[in-house]
Amino acid sequence: MTRSNPKTALTLSALVLAVSLGGCASPSSEGDFGNSVRAMIASQKYRPVGEEPPAVPTMDGARAAGSVERQRTAPPAPQRIYQGMGGAEL
């Protein structure tokens, strides 16, 4: 019987490992990640061709600053409590 060379055994083991792990590799699907969810949501919404949803109103900085200032300086408006609301009976 002949003794095998340790270098040959190591090379053969590395080759077998590389070939067996090659079968586990699959193409990446990260480019398609979320497409099924987006397609499902789109299929649940009906919009005729050419009809887009209305634009969401936005607030500029000056208007926001004025709103905050009014909240700070204006006295709070009196609140009305109705019967049966939150257990308060007046």
Rank of each mutant, 00 (worst) to 15 (best):
P53T: 02
Q71I: 14
V68C: 04
P78I: 03
G61F: 05
G87E: 06
T58A: 10
P78N: 04
F33R: 06
L15V: 14
A42C: 04
T2C: 12
E69L: 07
A74M: 05
S4E: 15
R47D: 15
Y82P: 00
M59W: 04
S20M: 05
Q83K: 09
D60Y: 03
P75T: 02
M59E: 09
R70D: 14
T58C: 04
E30A: 15
I41C: 01
Y82W: 08
K7N: 15
G34W: 02
V49G: 04
R80W: 05
I41D: 02
E30Q: 15
Q71G: 14
Q71M: 15
L17P: 00
E69Q: 00
E51G: 00
A14N: 11
T58R: 10
Y46V: 03
T2A: 15
I41G: 03
P54G: 01
G86W: 01
Q83H: 07
K7R: 15
P53K: 00
E52N: 12
E30F: 12
M1H: 09
Q71H: 14
L12Y: 08
P48D: 13
Q79V: 06
G50I: 02
R47V: 12
R80A: 05
L21W: 02
I81G: 09
S20Q: 04
M85Q: 12
P27C: 12
A14S: 14
L17V: 13
G61M: 12
A88Y: 12
A62V: 06
C24Q: 07
G22I: 00
S67Y: 12
G86T: 03
R72D: 15
G61P: 00
I81A: 10
P48Q: 11
R72A: 15
L15Q: 13
V16I: 08
K45A: 11
A55K: 09
G31L: 11
V56E: 08
T58N: 08
A77K: 11
V16L: 09
G87H: 02
M1P: 03
K45S: 12
N35L: 08
K7I: 14
A77D: 03
P27D: 11
T73P: 01
G31V: 12
C24L: 13
P57G: 05
V19A: 14
A14E: 10
M40C: 14
C24P: 05
R80V: 09
R70P: 00
G66E: 10
A14C: 08
R70H: 07
A65V: 06
G86E: 01
V16N: 04
A64W: 07
A74E: 12
T73F: 10
T58D: 10
R80N: 08
K7L: 15
A64P: 00
G34E: 02
T73K: 00
A88W: 08
S20I: 06
A25K: 04
S20H: 05
P6H: 07
M40Q: 15
N35Q: 11
Y82K: 04
A62M: 06
E69W: 00
A39I: 07
Q83T: 03
V56P: 00
A62I: 02
C24G: 13
R3F: 05
I81Q: 11
V37P: 00
R63M: 07
S36E: 10
Y82M: 05
T58G: 10
P6N: 05
V37A: 14
S28D: 10
P75E: 01
S20A: 09
L15R: 12
L90G: 15
S13C: 14
M85V: 08
M40N: 13
Q79I: 07
T58F: 01
E69K: 01
P54W: 01
